[in-house]
Nucleic acid binder design. Sequence first.
DNA 1: CATAGTAGTGCATGCGCATGCATAGTGAGC
DNA 2: GCTCACTATGCATGCGCATGCACTACTATG
Lengths: 353, 353
Amino acid sequence: MARKSSRSTSFDVAALAGVSQSAVSRAFTTGSRIADETRTKVLEAALKLNYVPNSIASSLTTKRTNIVALIIGNLDNPFYVHVLHTFSRRLQEQGRQVLIFTVEPNSESDEAIMHLLKYQVDGVVLTAAQLSTRMISLCHDRGIPIVLFNRYIPGSDASGVRCDNVAGGALIAEAFLAAGAKNFALITGDLKGTTSQDRVRGFVGRLLEGGVKRTRIVEVEGHSSYEGALNATAKLFRDQNRVRPDALFGVNDIMAMAAIDALRHRIGLRVPEDLMVGGFDDIPEGRRLPYQLTTVRQPIEQMVDETLQLLHLDDPTEPIPRGIDRPIKGRLIWRNTIPVPLSHRWTEPEIQS
Amino acid sequence: MARKSSRSTSFDVAALAGVSQSAVSRAFTTGSRIADETRTKVLEAALKLNYVPNSIASSLTTKRTNIVALIIGNLDNPFYVHVLHTFSRRLQEQGRQVLIFTVEPNSESDEAIMHLLKYQVDGVVLTAAQLSTRMISLCHDRGIPIVLFNRYIPGSDASGVRCDNVAGGALIAEAFLAAGAKNFALITGDLKGTTSQDRVRGFVGRLLEGGVKRTRIVEVEGHSSYEGALNATAKLFRDQNRVRPDALFGVNDIMAMAAIDALRHRIGLRVPEDLMVGGFDDIPEGRRLPYQLTTVRQPIEQMVDETLQLLHLDDPTEPIPRGIDRPIKGRLIWRNTIPVPLSHRWTEPEIQS
DNA sequence: CATAGTAGTGCATGCGCATGCATAGTGAGC
DNA sequence: GCTCACTATGCATGCGCATGCACTACTATG
């Protein structure tokens, strides 16, 4: 047999160290009652045998796997890559592992849930994907906390952390108004998702307060992609009879960037001279020289922290938080795609590389 | 106790179905000897109890977790995000799970290995990160196959799949020569990595064959990042006394894109009129309107397939492949940053969205 | 009708570790 | 010197499932 796995067990180590198997177990468990001397002896033996404790086996008794599942629906958007990265880093710092499930953008993740249930994960984070309430109760029944990231299911008892998208959308509307825009348009992804919905609502709502009655809304086919937004922008300017917008809100940064590209390279308009553009997310790509996108920053670090807190990973006896909705305020980052009105000049400048 | 995990076991199901626990186990194991009638009975009972088999427990006996670890060192580069995505999709299709470890770009991943050993993963894929030979033998000794993706460790017995970077670099050099360039420069990340090294080698080598004796090489500080390449490009054009290059090879697409941005927005040069630029990877971002980057496409799908084959996930009795190096040829994608010479006009055109 | 063969099932056991309980050992306090 | 309190350790057991083996009830064959 070629793949003879010479994995030594706690018994092997115990034998070499001249102690019992329980002693080996305790040596590897912090906060266990064991003499320093014994622990040293055990660790030395373990080192000799290349022994590594089998977490799988230990989780059988402890009922904790230290694995957190992350369901992610859109890796095409750098924002969610950043989210993934942040979760991964944080959880690794805590000595936990990340089991990842990728699903189609905005598609059902019920199947993924079934898989991760088999692995007895300690918690689930779901982002950029849908979930049936049946699955949520399935998790809850088994004591597995699940937190939605930047998404919520109205009326369900799933908890979630998200950016305050309504307020964020309003931020962009305000910036446009302050910069003196008159005709407004926005490009959004699938309006079935609460995230897009809220941003649109916040944007349109704030404009209404400002006396603007009409906003052109173009819904991209499929999910919020660069290509979709490219076509949507073209469509927006195809009809020559309509009033040309002078302010365009891309409901997330990639769509805003796509719009900018389309405006410059296809339509032949300048940004922000002919038309100002606002985004949402603050992905690093938006900071680059050709874009310098004015946008709403989602405080990822803080959102991830809140999410992990809701998971109660450290104290499984805590009741699973149900129906909690934690909206977190974003912040407007002034860059170059919306002219900064005089009244805003005092805003702290951002250091650019 | 709030988190009363009401997880039912195979015994509960057995009791309800009026069979033995082994029957339940067999009902969930494909290819097991069990009457259809019994299986149906079991599955019905399981459904009633919301029973989901505990993979953790089963892996204790089967010695297979169906978990594959993926160590990834650079999520800032969309190329590796794409790689991650492809692996995830493929493995999920096979009913396997992905345990992800993110490490700092090009840093040691020994610690990650220690963690994943605890989880008895069935295989390891490592990309954009370093690994000590000690760790490789540690994995091999325990029967865990490990495959390097786009990276190799000369003289070690770790196997790897990679793009043929030497040939790829040569492809760009050829394109430059065919387009009539005279003065060449390149921007690369850390030259300790074999990937950058090979691309540079291939590029410079081909130029030498073409009679070009000098190539300016700028090594970015740190890893291959957008920001690094931005500075490197600036540096490249700072010295007015030197001959200005008319062809610039960005050793990967983000660096090439950064170079283009810097040239246009900082230096004030046109691409490709004043200076042609070639990239490597073919990330989707490079196809966008402002860039239309001519680049070498890495065949990700094929590379992932080869990697999974080397892992022998389906047949653990296969000997672990050692010291195998599978270079896979990339393909030049003509777009707009290198003028297409007349002699190449016949190349199949790419459909652009 | 006798026998060999086969499909279906249950029993018992073990995977590697954690942990409650019992026990041995140590030192302090009277 | 004796008891008490406490620490360190070992023993035995169970976590949830897979699987070798034994056993039963059939079917096919001569």
